[in-house]
């Protein structure tokens, strides 16, 4: 997967361990192949091979990559464009599964209250659930600092100018965070309702946070995110008396793009409705711990 999406030389993706203060660039060494026919080509760091691949053999058109069936000079691939990210996401998923870790991908528009919800959740549940956080932002460790202050171990992933987390970045973040077996890993994605919808990270579920200060028609305007999500948390419901927001209509819109979606109403500020979120979290945590050999 191209980990340096949209990035210029000034803003490389990196992970920052807020426990140790160590920052590591998300980069892979460039590597070069020389084929038997003398062709030499190199891959820039972001060009990773997602499959085991032997380069020492003769390259002719009949050799057996199981994903390519060749007819004359046209090579039929019929592969998903995101196949490599999906494969890496499956690796992450297996990593979580084997460790009975519940991993959630938290998505929303900027300012919907993802970090505030996480802070509150950590303060309320830190003695009950082993909570670990991967915090995604284009730049700054501000949100990571807030999570750490709330009492959870956190690694900040900065994407540079990238607009979403991908499975590679999450794998790097996990290598730094080292969440123990049986823990809960909350992955706070970049505030963006478009791009993160397409990129599987290996999570068990996507949780969309939807502030009632947004428009009721957001699920219709950004259907891919609501289609991909398993749960929508309507946040800031303490503000409803001051707004014209029609919560029932927003919920109907979310169901219109995703008839299976679960819906909760909370205020991370006043605590109203948070019990329903905690109950959902406990249930998913228990399910993740039973999923391994199911």
């Amino acid at each position: 997967m191209c980990a340096i999406c949209g990035c210029d030389g000034e803003a490389k993706p990196s992970v920052l361990d807020l426990q140790t203060g160590r920052r590591t660039a998300i980069e892979l060494p460039a590597h070069e192949h020389v084929h038997a026919d003398g062709t030499r080509h190199s891959h820039p760091p972001e060009h990773q091979h997602g499959h085991p691949h032997d380069h020492d053999h003769d390259h002719n058109l009949d050799h057996g990559h199981d994903h390519a069936h060749q007819h004359g000079t046209t090579v039929a691939l019929e592969a998903r464009i995101l196949a490599k990210n999906d494969a890496l996401a499956q690796q992450n998923r297996g990593w979580f599964l084997g460790r009975e870790i519940l991993a959630l991908n938290l998505v929303s528009a900027p300012g919907a209250g993802k970090t505030t919800l996480l802070e509150r959740t950590i303060r309320d549940l830190r003695d009950e659930l082993p909570l670990y956080v991967l915090e995604g932002d284009q730049a700054t460790a501000n949100d990571g600092e807030r999570i750490r202050a709330a009492g959870a171990a956190v690694v900040q992933i900065n994407t540079g100018t990238g607009c979403h987390l991908d499975a590679t970045m999450v794998a790097r973040g996990l290598a730094e965070l080292k969440p123990p077996p049986g823990s809960v890993v909350l992955i706070e994605n970049i505030g963006n309702l478009v791009c993160p919808a397409l990129f599987d990270l290996g999570e068990r579920a996507k949780v969309a946070i939807f502030s009632v200060t947004e428009g009721e028609d957001k699920p219709l305007k950004y259907p891919h995110m609501f289609r991909a999500a398993d749960l929508v948390i309507f946040n800031k419901i303490d503000l409803l008396p001051h707004l014209d927001f029609d919560l029932a209509r927003a919920e109907a819109n979310a169901r219109a793009v995703n008839s299976e979606i679960a819906l909760l109403r909370v205020s991370a500020r006043t605590g109203e409705g948070l019990d329903s979120w905690y109950e959902w979290l406990r249930r998913e945590w228990a399910a993740a711990r039973e999923a391994t050999f199911a």
Binding site: C2, C5, G6, I81, G162, C195, L198, F199
Partner: peptide
């Protein structure tokens, strides 16, 4: 901008 990441993958 996810199109840039997709184009890299393509």
């Amino acid at each position: 901008m996810h199109e840039l990441a997709l184009t890299c993958a393509i």
